[in-house]
Design a protein around this nucleic acid. Structure first.
Lengths: 338, 338
DNA sequence: TTGTAGGCGTTATCAA
DNA sequence: TTGATAACGCCTACAA
């Protein structure tokens, strides 16, 4: 024991066994007789022994780290996913470690190299639009990988998400079905998933013969409630007779609602609103706001569960999981009296 | 070189020098002659050598990890702090690693042990209410420590935050000054900082001779917009003639606004509202919502800057930093016509 | 300025 | 079931 740090060998000495036995108690308890195991566990407790992860990693040539690559920390959506991941990880033996790609494929690639160098037990990455090099790195990584947030063809390994195209299509179709005719699209930070939502919107309106590209208002800025107000302003300035907006996400939708109130535009009669993700506040806004519910926390939970199952050699029932979505129709899209 | 992994010794061999020299090039470049250094760097590049962090940590008995302990991942407030931390860390040589104490002193203690075992370069912990054992661990830790979120006496080491008591006092006094007389307190998840806000509220009202403890509505549940609606309902059920609410945070405040609208209670004339933190959406709500602005991202930035300065042996100008707050008066608290 | 060599704490292979 | 004893890859006195 050096400067308060208890080592494996200290435990061994105290227990009168070899370090190998103590190590086994920790890693393959079944290989140690019950009484010895008992005694050692007790001593570990008493001494407050905690394994040195560096030594462990060096000796075993692997870590119990599960690396997570997400594009943003501040986005509500990823916060929820992380919550799901953490909820599961906290009761496991794995350490979750995450890094922020800031929506950059290049940063993702670099971070991937850093992670891979630690020989992680598993990896979770966001989306399906990795760079060619990143995909190659992921394929080579001799650990399981889960791509989250989307569904799609040619997965690197496993996948859990939903179709943004279909979600947006459903939302837009709902607005059409509610009687709106001049349906705009408001989009912030046009990442791949936002692009796909725009695609779903476009498909739905073209099918309905209502598409007008001038009704699309986007910005590279990241989405906020304030931005929702501004984008609605831009849309109205175009004077195209918009009577509904499908928003990229709920922050924008809330901003649109506030701005409509400020401009005394009645919602939903003169302006329909639909968001995306169904954040908690959508249900209690006044009027309540229609949105496409997504299962973000569940996505995180599933992703890490799949990973752990695979790491531990269990069969993963469905390695390409589509969690779907659910359109939650509320007051903000009821043009016609119910 | 084993299975594609390039080791330090491979670089040394290729360069015709000892491993010590290569190691020096990486850690103390100034100790190596320019030409040798040049050559080694080139070879490192060619071979794609990346140091094994586990081996490095084991040999040097320290890591470049900065550990962060926060009580919640989902809370907006901490998300902002993390953003600040990340913004600085990303351009440094330090790896940020964080863990979630879930508002439990016991979990904090355990996580602290885990972190300390990795011999981190520095530590950031939340608040000033650590358990006795945790404080002892932090004192012993031979790395710098920053406590964030609050100011207070008897810091473990460094500190950056603000006074929740004063913030709440200012908010409540503002409501008093605006002409409200029956000012309620709505509080969710009564963590230490929330408790202190309640204290500030109480002080302000007692000074004004307006304190009535029946106007305090709290819940252990964590705060959401929906909860704001519910708590207002509970308050109104008590039928105490409340004419304003000071909310624990902005989520609650927004919920209160929505609920007032739903019940056709005019804000601010019949009901004043003040939140805490000044989230972005407060400014664009309709009516806009008064709040106490706090400097969350800045807090994260300062905290990690202080840490890095100390780690690298630089002088920290002000190790006990009070970032203050700012009362942002908006429409929701203007009882009297301006 | 460079090299030698011991050690960091754990795991894992072989024997016993 | 348990124990010796090499690795694991890098760092860092100490020496040259």
């Amino acid at each position: 024991m050096i400067d308060g740090r208890v080592r494996l060998s200290d435990v061994a000495t105290a227990a009168g066994v070899s370090t190998a036995t103590v190590s086994r108690v920790l890693r393959r308890p079944d290989m140690v007789s019950a009484d010895v195991r008992q005694r050692i566990l007790q001593i570990i407790e008493e001494l407050g022994y905690v394994a040195n992860p560096a030594a462990r990693a060096l000796a075993s040539a692997r870590t119990n780290v599960i690396g997570i690559l997400i594009p943003s920390l501040t986005n509500n959506v990823f916060a929820d996913v992380l919550r799901g991941i953490y909820a599961v990880a906290q009761d496991s033996t794995y350490d979750v470690q995450f890094a922020n790609t800031r929506y950059s494929n290049l940063e993702e690639e670099n971070l991937l190299r850093v992670f891979l160098n630690q020989k992680p037990s598993g990896l979770i990455v966001t989306g399906t639009d990795q760079s060619v090099a990143s995909r190659a790195l992921l394929k080579q990584a001799n650990c399981p990988v889960v791509q989250i947030m989307e569904t799609g063809e040619s997965p690197v390994d496993m996948m859990v998400g939903f179709s943004h195209v279909k979600g947006a299509y459903a939302a837009t179709s709902h607005l059409v079905g509610s009687g709106y005719r001049r349906i705009a699209f408001l989009g912030a930070r046009m990442d791949p998933r936002t692009q796909r939502r725009l695609l779903g919107y476009t498909e739905a309106l073209e099918e309905a013969g209502l598409f007008d590209e001038r009704l699309i208002v986007t910005t590279p800025r990241s989405s906020t409630v304030t931005l929702g107000c501004e984008l609605l302003g831009l849309l109205l300035d175009r004077d195209l007779g918009a009577d509904a907006v499908f928003c990229n996400n709920d922050d924008l939708a809330l901003g649109v609602l506030f701005e409509c109130q400020r401009r005394r535009i009645p919602v939903p009669s003169e302006m329909g609103i639909c968001g995306f993700n169904d954040l908690e506040m959508m249900a209690v806004a006044n009027p309540s706001i229609t949105s496409v519910r997504t299962f973000r926390q569940e996505m995180g939970e599933k992703a890490i569960r799949m990973l752990i199952d695979r790491i531990e050699g269990r069969q993963v029932e469905n390695p390409l999981l589509d969690l779907g979505f659910e359109l939650i129709a509320r007051q903000s899209s009821q043009k016609l009296r119910p």
